[in-house]
């Protein structure tokens, strides 16, 4: 089946099998390997991307379900000149990662969280990231990063390119 998907602002049209998962389409067909595959069972959140502005686990969405949608992956967060998105900058500044495997998913989940709730409390951040697992950090610096990003962005949640 032919799908037409706008990813990070660029329109792609491809022929895919019905059973192709969105994460395999992004990584295998489009070559956007920033989105990681972790558990592959919609538990860990490593494969989180934005679909029409909302976080989804791309291992549990078919590419055909994304036909006509706008997808943002971690590659779409920094500016074309390489300057980091405020969420990425906050993770960098606050040491919000160790091995980094969960980070693309954490950043995308954070983008969705801050769009829905631009000024979350610490508890709301912890609840808002319940769908993303990190096996290194114990989450403390991740939560710190999200709170710092919220303060920097101060409600400018449309900063995500699409």
């Amino acid at each position: 089946m032919r799908v037409s998907v706008k990813v990070n602002g660029r329109l792609y049209e491809n022929e895919v099998e019905g059973r192709t998962l969105l994460v395999h389409y992004l990584r295998g067909v489009l070559g956007l390997t920033g989105t990681n595959i972790g558990c592959d069972t919609s538990s860990c959140g490593a494969c989180t991307v934005l679909m029409d502005g909302e976080s989804v686990k791309s291992c549990t969405v078919l590419a055909v379900q994304a036909d006509g949608a706008e997808i943002t992956t971690i590659e779409g967060m920094a500016q074309p000149d390489g300057s980091l998105h405020p969420i990425q900058k906050a993770f960098w500044d606050n040491h919000g990662l160790q091995c980094g495997y969960c980070t693309p998913g954490m950043v995308m989940a954070t983008a969705s969280l801050l769009k829905e709730n631009p000024h979350p409390s610490e508890e709301e951040v912890r609840m808002g990231l319940e769908g993303n697992l990190c096996r290194c950090t114990g989450y403390h610096n991740i939560v710190k990063s999200v709170l710092a990003a919220a303060a920097t962005m101060d409600g400018q949640t449309e900063a995500v390119r699409s």
Binding site: S42, G45, T48, M51, E54, S55, V56, K57, T60, V61, A109, S112, L113, E116, G128, E130, G131, N132
Partner: peptide, 9 residues
């Protein structure tokens, strides 16, 4: 239910 990503779908 589940987590935010699950609730979005």
């Amino acid at each position: 239910i589940g987590d935010p990503q699950v609730r979005h779908r």
